[in-house]
């Protein structure tokens, strides 16, 4: 039973990076979702939820096309760096960000909108701008939701397969993640290695989630947990 540590560290790096970027990216999006009264909000909500229901291969396929040398984005990137983003680690990060976006945005937005609106009114009457209200009231009271969102994003990125395969391919040290490695091992009938990697991922993800949920206890949003479990 051999463990492909390279694949493990690569996956971990990807998950940490994606969780961090998504944390920053999802805050303003979630804020808008929670507090905007725009009539077309449902439209944006639907788009943002798409990655939950789309097969990862569909998402990966479009990403591959978008990042490839035939798309304007791909050509622009090619002229800038000399290569396209397809089959690179950066491409993988972009793909994972899109794929895991709802797992950050939805728990964040849910916890923002569950903050008692009276507290927001009180904050405003006390002279606070909406920015100050956000940082002093909304954000601290949403802490459990933020933790949940980051944990879900992290775990979800750790285990993704379809998008990685489509966008990243299978380049050792660059885009070969744990899940791809397992798939490879099974294809090659190396069940012992596959078992080792699978166990490693299982144990790791379980530990992370157990820690987060233990810290967060009962405050976590049960609905989002079931959503993640159904995935």
């Amino acid at each position: 039973m051999s463990i492909n540590w390279q694949a493990f560290w690569l996956t971990l790096e990807l998950a940490v990076l994606v969780s961090a970027i998504l944390f920053v990216l999802a805050l303003p999006i979630a804020y808008w979702l929670a507090f905007s009264r725009a009539r077309w909000k449902f439209f944006i909500e639907a788009i943002l939820a798409l990655p939950i229901v789309l097969p990862p291969t569909v998402l990966g396929f479009y990403l591959l096309v978008a990042l490839g040398s035939r798309s304007p984005l791909g050509r622009w990137c090619l002229s800038l760096t000399g290569h396209t983003l397809a089959f690179t680690f950066t491409g993988l990060v972009i793909g994972s960000i899109l794929y895991s976006l709802p797992f950050s945005v939805q728990p964040f937005a849910a916890s923002f909108s569950s903050v008692d609106p009276k507290l927001l009114s009180a904050s405003a009457t006390l002279g606070a701008s909406s920015r100050r209200t956000f940082f002093r009231v909304v954000l601290p009271l949403s802490l459990p939701g933020l933790v949940t969102g980051v944990a879900l994003t992290f775990a979800h990125t750790m285990g993704e397969f379809g998008v990685v395969l489509m966008v990243g391919g299978n380049i050792p040290g660059v885009t070969r993640t744990v899940s791809i490695d397992i798939y490879d091992q099974v294809e090659a009938a190396n069940y012992a290695s596959a078992n080792g990697m699978a166990l490693l991922l299982l144990a790791f993800c379980f530990t992370v989630l157990a820690i987060v949920y233990g810290v967060n206890r009962k405050k976590v949003n049960q609905r989002l947990l079931t959503m993640a479990a159904a995935k």
Binding site: K118, S121, A122, A124, T125, L126, G127, A128, S129
Partner: peptide
Amino acid sequence: VSRRNIGYVL
């Protein structure tokens, strides 16, 4: 609201 300087006990 934030510029009115009123006290409001909800």
